[in-house]
């Protein structure tokens, strides 16, 4: 090969071949096959009913939102294991603020919420602010103490969960208005698309644009690909990484409020496998665990897989817990494939 001549693009795969090699497209095919497969196996094609598919979308919304955030974090070569704990803590703070401002203690105990609008607005603000603050703590620890983000967020995962339990004495925040659920959390646009999913799709669309078309996105990938190269290009990498963790935290705060509207209660014992599910979706979707290569579309599509598996298995009368086993195995396979790809290109 001639050192100064970049080879003309090889007469390789056509548009179809290239599309099939792109992970998001491949994942979309896998998802389609799973849906059709479960449809065929389920009694009377029950799996394919609009109501079932709509429920799957609702069940996937929080994981998808977190997966979109994790895509940005992994793109920069970092990791955030604390997102589940962040969702729990942010929903606790959001719920407490919401309940406290919606009416007097006596009123809310009687399910009366005279100041509901104020309460909801403040609750959203509190949840997102708590999430962002949680992310800022992660970001500060990672960039100031220079401790690996795997360890930092493993630590803050425990700290966040513990704080939520301390704040609530281990029981869920009481008197969260049911209206959140009946007016938003389980409502569907045209009877099909759950409201929370609309929020998730809107945010994901913005993030997709940011990663692909803005300096912020390019710098994120540059940092993940080679921090040294990014710094030599004049990019201030530590502030950028800090901002990414704040962004991830804010998204966890949004997810926390969506969770609150969906269940009309906090879930202080929950979200223990949320980080695993989101990170698995991101890696399965084609984002490199080693940074530098990321696809938000791939993460969004792949985040459907665990929920489709769980729902499909239930309809088939198999324990849904098998889904955890399947996702764990797919995750390991996806990382192995990613590693191979890197080694081949070395």
């Amino acid at each position: 090969m001639n050192g100064l001549t970049l080879d003309p693009p090889a007469a390789g795969p056509g548009p179809l071949g290239r599309a099939l090699r792109s992970t998001p497209v491949a994942m979309a095919l896998v998802v389609a096959v799973l849906i059709l497969g479960f449809g065929a196996l389920s009694p009377n094609w029950a799996f394919l009913r609009t109501s079932n598919l709509s429920t799957i979308t609702l069940n996937v919304s929080v994981t998808m939102l977190l997966a979109v955030g994790i895509t940005m974090i992994l793109a920069a070569g970092e990791l955030d294991l604390s997102i589940g704990a962040n969702v729990v803590l942010s929903s606790v703070v959001g719920a407490k603020v919401l309940v406290a401002l919606s009416g007097t203690p006596d009123e809310v105990r009687a399910a009366q919420y005279p100041d509901l609008a104020l309460g909801v607005a403040a609750g959203i603000g509190a949840a997102v602010a708590t999430g962002a603050a949680f992310g800022a703590v992660n970001g500060l620890l990672v960039t100031r103490l220079r401790v690996n983000s795997f360890i930092v967020t493993l630590g803050t995962m425990g700290i966040g969960t513990g704080t939520a339990l301390v704040l609530t004495n281990g029981s869920n925040v009481p008197y969260v208005p049911r209206l959140l659920q009946t007016e938003f959390g389980v409502v569907r646009l045209f009877g099909v698309i759950p409201y929370p999913m609309i929020v998730v799709l809107a945010i994901s669309g913005v993030m997709l644009y940011v990663l692909r078309h803005t300096r912020f996105g390019l710098y994120t990938l540059a940092i993940g690909s080679s921090r040294e190269a990014a710094e030599r290009a004049g990019i201030r990498t530590l502030p950028h990484v800090f901002r990414l963790f704040v962004l991830m935290g804010a998204l966890a705060g949004v997810a926390a409020f969506l969770d609150l509207t969906r269940f009309a209660t906090t879930n202080v014992g929950g979200h223990q496998t949320t980080a695993l599910a989101a990170i698995a979706a991101v890696v399965i979707g084609g984002t490199s665990l080693f940074g530098g290569r990321a696809t938000i579309a791939g993460s969004m599509v792949a985040s459907l897989i665990p929920v489709i598996l769980a729902t499909g298995l239930v309809i088939l009368g198999v324990q849904a817990f098998w889904q955890l086993i399947a996702v764990g195995m797919i995750l390991i396979a996806a990382v192995a494939i990613d590693q191979r790809r890197r080694e081949r290109l070395k």
């Binding site: 300096r215 990938l221 690909s225 040294e228 990014a230 030599r232 290009a233 530098g292």
Partner: peptide, 19 residues
Amino acid sequence: DLALAPDLSVAENMFLGRE
């Protein structure tokens, strides 16, 4: 050490920081 980001394209590397 060249200071190139291996996962970015040639064009992106040449403009990195000054796009």
